[in-house]
Nucleic acid binder design. Structure first.
Ligand code: FES
Ligand code: FES
Lengths: 141, 141
DNA sequence: ATGATACTTGACTATTTTGGTCAGGTTTAT
DNA sequence: ATAAACCTGACCAAAATAGTCAAGTATCAT
């Protein structure tokens, strides 16, 4: 069970961005330099964040990105969802009645993985971008 | 964040095996057929489980595998550990003081991922093989 | 004894996912 | 005008995953 870089970078970049929220747009170039993330890769990530209305873009010189909602209202769930970093524990299709084993009943462990998925998602549902910025600020004191 | 088949199969196979615990050894062939898991793949998995003393092997005709400890004392953590299905959320090396960004301090999100890792591991620490067998039995009623 | 069953080991491989890069745009402030 | 910055899609290499395959060895039932 590993977290991918895409999800990690998305959150990292947004925390960086959120710190300047309301001051001015933040360019990907700056985030790239500060967080050591490839600029090209960041562009892919922000394209998705924009489509899911997590951020807004400001084009042209002095442009960049700004948050499209309040940091308190952006949960990790939203971010992960936007960049397709989904939590997937079961093998089967959930809607289907068939199990991952091809049989007509769910496998011995289906229920367990489903519980696990819920458990993990609970974590993501609770944490907001605002929480992260604050925790990070406190740790500096 | 996805669970791999190796971890999923390991637990699935052990639940199957645990149901016959104390009655007789269970052959991988049987598990393979019942759970629709490749026999060759199961062999790899059980080799690891044996090395970590989760199961014991009984060779020869009518042989198979039996649990090496009580089902109540086998936690998901132990199983996942045995088959190298580790939960990995941070990018950096934990012991190192350096961050995943190559800088001398941990990145903005390090702490978050560390929390997440703990959160997930809590789940695995709680669940035992015995729990799983029982839950499964109850669901049948 | 001897076959059949089942564990044991190690190498090998195909597929998928990941983590990017690259090339070529378009927009807009100065 | 021009440079800064966003935008898009195609492309690609490395790593991880999910197996397969081959060649054993041990043990039991008959
Ligand atoms: S994971 Fe859903 S049936 Fe096995
Ligand atoms: S994950 Fe540890 S420093 Fe970024």
């Amino acid at each position: 069970m590993r977290l991918t870089s895409k999800g990690r970078y998305a959150v990292m970049a947004l925390v960086d961005l959120a710190r300047f929220d309301g001051i001015n747009p933040v360019s990907l170039r700056d985030i790239s330099l500060r967080q050591s993330i490839s600029l090209d890769y960041l562009e892919q990530i922000f394209s998705k964040l924009r489509k899911k209305e997590i951020v807004q873009s400001v084009r042209g010189t002095q442009g960049g990105y700004i948050l499209n909602r309040k940091a308190k209202e952006i949960k990790l769930t939203n971010i992960f969802d936007a960049v397709d970093e989904k939590v997937k524990t079961v093998q089967c299709k959930k809607e289907s009645k068939k199990g991952c084993n091809g049989k007509s009943t769910k496998c011995l462990t289906h229920n367990l993985w489903d519980e696990l998925e819920t458990h993990i998602n609970n974590f993501f549902d609770k944490k907001s971008l605002d929480d992260l910025v604050k925790e990070n600020f406190e740790r500096r004191l």
